[in-house]
Simulated scan of single mutants.
Amino acid sequence: MSSKRERESERRRQEKFEQRIADKEQSRHGARRRNAVVAVLVAAVAVVGVVVATALSGTGGDEVAADPATAFAEDPTAGTAAPQDPATGGAEPAPTQDPASQDADNPCPPGPGPVQPVQVDEQPPPAEGPVTMTITTTCGDVVVELDGDAAPQAVGSTVGLARAGFYDGTPCHRLTTSGIFVLQCGDPTATGTGGPGYRYGPVENAPADDVYPAGTIAMARAGNDPQSMGSQFFIVYEDSVIPSDGAGGYTVMGQVVEGLDIVQQVAEGGLAPDGVAPARSIGIVSIDVEESA
Rank of each mutant, 00 (worst) to 15 (best):
V159N: 03
G215D: 00
P202S: 15
A127M: 05
E238W: 02
E268D: 13
I180P: 01
A151N: 00
P196A: 08
G160E: 06
S240M: 02
I287C: 00
R32N: 14
M253D: 06
C172Q: 01
R174S: 08
D141V: 07
E290C: 13
P83D: 00
T176N: 09
S281N: 05
P196S: 10
N106T: 08
K16Q: 13
V263L: 11
V52T: 09
A82C: 13
G49Y: 04
G201C: 11
V118A: 11
A22N: 07
G148L: 08
A87H: 08
M1Y: 13
Q264L: 09
F72T: 10
G186K: 02
D23R: 11
G230P: 11
D62L: 11
Q123W: 00
P86E: 12
F166G: 03
G30Q: 14
F181M: 09
S281C: 07
D210N: 14
S292C: 04
A46H: 03
V45P: 04
D105E: 15
G79Y: 02
P83V: 00
S231M: 06
Q97V: 15
E92D: 14
P99T: 11
A100M: 14
D288N: 14
D149T: 07
C185F: 02
L260N: 01
P93S: 06
P110G: 06
G246A: 15
V257E: 04
A220D: 00
R5E: 15
R13V: 06
E92L: 15
V266A: 03
E6N: 14
G194R: 01
E8M: 13
G254R: 02
A272D: 13
D245A: 10
G201M: 13
C108W: 04
E128F: 11
I287T: 03
R199N: 14
D261K: 10
T158H: 09
P130Y: 07
D168H: 13
A267L: 10
M219R: 03
Q123F: 01
S281F: 06
I282E: 03
P95V: 14
T189Y: 03
E18L: 08
Q232R: 01
G246C: 11
A44H: 13
E25W: 07
G129K: 08
A206C: 08
V159E: 02
A43P: 03
Q84C: 15
V50D: 11
I262P: 03
G223D: 07
S157Y: 00
F166Q: 02
V118L: 14
N106A: 08
V40F: 06
T158M: 12
